[in-house]
Structure formats: C-alpha cells, structure tokens
C-alpha cells in the first residue's frame, strides 16, 4: 500500500512541470475567456519561439554539466551585426548566414577555452558574455537600430498557415530531440554530463562532445537572436540582456539538472518555455498587479527547484538502501 502511494507520488514528481503547466492553463482559462483561444495559443508559441530555441541550445550545455552565460550577448551581437548589414542594403539571407557563423564562432571559442585551457565554463562564458556585449555596443554606438520592414514581414510571415517563428522552433526542438535520443552523439552528451572520466574510459572523446555542444549552443543563440529581432523591429542596446537566465530557467523548469546528465529538450525544455510564456501571457490577460509578475515567476522556479532537490534526495536514499 505504502509502495503504491510512493509510486504515484514519484510519478507526480517526475512530471511536476507538466502538472504545473496544466494547472496554469486551467487557472488562466477560468479567469480569462480570451486566454483559452486558438489565437492566444499561437501568440504564446510565437512569443516563446526565440526563448525555446535559445533554451534548446542551453539544454545541451547543461546536460554536460556546463553552462553558457554568453547566449544573451551572442543574441545582441547577432542582432546588431545583422541589423547593420540589412540596413546597409545587403541581402537578408547573406546577413543570416554570416551571423549564424558568428554564433558558431562564439561556441568554438567557448569550447576551446574550456577544454584546452581547462577553465570552468562559468568563467569562460562570463568573459565571452562581456566581450560579446561590448563588441555589440561598440558596433552599434549604443544606438538603437531600426530594422527595415522586410525583416518584420519575415517575423510575422506564415508557411502553410504556421507562423515562421513557430515553424523554426518546432524544427529546432525536433532536431534536438532526435539528436539527443537517436544518435551516438546524443547519448555521449548524457554520458559526459554524468562523469567525464568514465566517458573517457568508455572510449568517448569528451573534448569533441564538449566542442559540439558549445557549437550547438552558439548556433541556437544566433538563430534565437534572429527570430527575436524579426519580431521586434528594432534592436535597443539592452536587447538580449538576461536572456541567458531565462534560457537556463526554462531548461531547469523542464527538468534538466544543473549537475548534468539529466534532462530533455522534448518535452522537458519546451514545456519549461511554454510554462514561463503562459504565465507571462496569462498575467497580462487578467491584468494582474505588475508587482506580482516577478513574485510569481520567482516562486514557480523555487517550487521546481525544490521538487528537483526532493527527487535528488530520493535518488540518493534509494541508492543507499540498494532498493528499487
């Protein structure tokens, strides 16, 4: 009897974000009829697209027990450079290719410092965080850059009736899911996050895994940046500020462990993003007191982290008792 209860408890804990998401949707739907509408769900998805892409890259890094604080700066730099290029009349696709390359270059630098010079990811990416933002401010002269209509059209465009940002997000999430669950590399990401030493013994090239992971994260940051600016219409000097924290929060909410080796992009991180976006969306819908917003977001993250540590304690205890 006690075991059945425990098992149900366990299942609830395992899917805590899912449950919380369902409760959030239910709560806002009851309070605001506009919330539970097809249009609004599209809105939530469009608004979450950039964050989802960013958080997907972050999930890869977190799975290896790393962290990438530079993603917000990459977003900003990518915005500034592509903005400048488009404004000066260069074709859109060209600017896109260049800035995606810049994202990859950042990832490469991060990875290089982490495994060549053995500096911890937190410090390395903090350095690139400052470097990226500084470079962006230098190039933009700390001025807002207004983007041409053509970019905005892309952001609000549709293919087969699906808005482009949503489509891009779905492609990225699906690819990431596929890579993590269906390729050798994906499994190696989990292995490296669990224990790099054991991975080495198992014949996995840890450095190559880390390199790929930071490349993916840099690329996703650049792509996320493009998706975001295609909706914003302008790049202010504060663009992308604190995006890294939102991305980390979304991944953690989705059940990815900060200690590496545990987590998923789908449903995990995607649900984390949707949860954050629905709460923000719902609070505006019901016109909640502005002071409530950070309070509620904060307590939700607190709740999830608490559940995560509860899980960890259970795991440890189970291990100690040698039971299943």
């Amino acid at each position: 009897m006690k075991w059945i209860l425990n098992k149900n408890m366990q299942r609830l804990l395992d899917n805590s974000t899912m449950v919380l998401f369902a409760l959030t949707v239910l709560f806002f739907s009851l309070l605001s009829p506009e919330f539970f509408s097809f249009n609004n769900f599209f809105n939530i998805l469009v608004q979450g697209a950039a964050l989802a892409i960013l958080a997907t890259g972050m999930t890869f890094v977190l799975l290896t027990a790393g962290i990438d604080l530079s993603v917000g700066s990459i977003m900003f730099l990518v915005g500034v450079i592509s903005g400048k290029m488009v404004v000066s009349g260069l074709p859109l696709w060209f600017a896109g290719v260049i800035v995606l390359g810049i994202g990859l270059a950042f990832g490469f630098v991060n990875a290089l410092f982490i495994f060549r010079l053995k500096v911890i990811p937190f410090i390395v990416t903090l350095a690139t965080f400052y470097a990226g933002r500084g470079l962006g401010l230098l190039i933009s002269d700390t001025r807002a850059i207004n983007l041409p209509e053509s970019l905005l059209k892309l952001g609000s465009g549709k293919i087969w009736g699906i808005p482009v940002p949503i489509l891009l997000m779905l492609i990225v999430v699906f690819l990431a899911y596929f890579i993590l669950t269906r390729t050798n590399f994906g499994k190696h990401v989990y292995a490296v996050g669990h224990d790099p030493e054991k991975s080495r013994k198992a014949g996995i090239s840890v450095n190559r895994v880390l390199l790929k992971v930071y490349l993916i994260c840099g690329f996703c940051a650049a792509l996320g940046g493009l998706v975001a600016i295609s909706q914003l219409g302008a790049i202010s000097p504060t663009f992308g500020l604190q995006s890294e924290f939102m991305a980390i929060a979304a991944a953690i909410l989705g059940g990815t462990s900060l200690f590496g080796g545990r987590g998923s992009v789908f449903p995990g991180t995607l649900i984390g993003v949707l949860l954050i976006q629905s709460i923000q969306n719902g609070l505006v819908m019901i016109n909640a007191d502005p002071y409530l917003h950070p309070l509620i977001t904060g307590s939700i993250i607190f709740l999830i982290v608490m559940i995560d540590s509860l899980q960890n304690m259970r795991r440890k205890k189970a291990k100690k008792l040698g039971l299943n």
Partner: peptide, 15 residues
C-alpha cells in the same frame, strides 16, 4: 526589456 514589451503588448491587445 524589449521582448517582454512586445509579448506584453501583444497579449494585452489579445485580451
């Protein structure tokens, strides 16, 4: 934050 502003205005117009 620009992105929050965009999402917020969109959501408010939805409501």
């Amino acid at each position: 934050n620009q992105e929050k502003a965009l999402a917020g205005v969109t959501n408010a117009l939805q409501a």
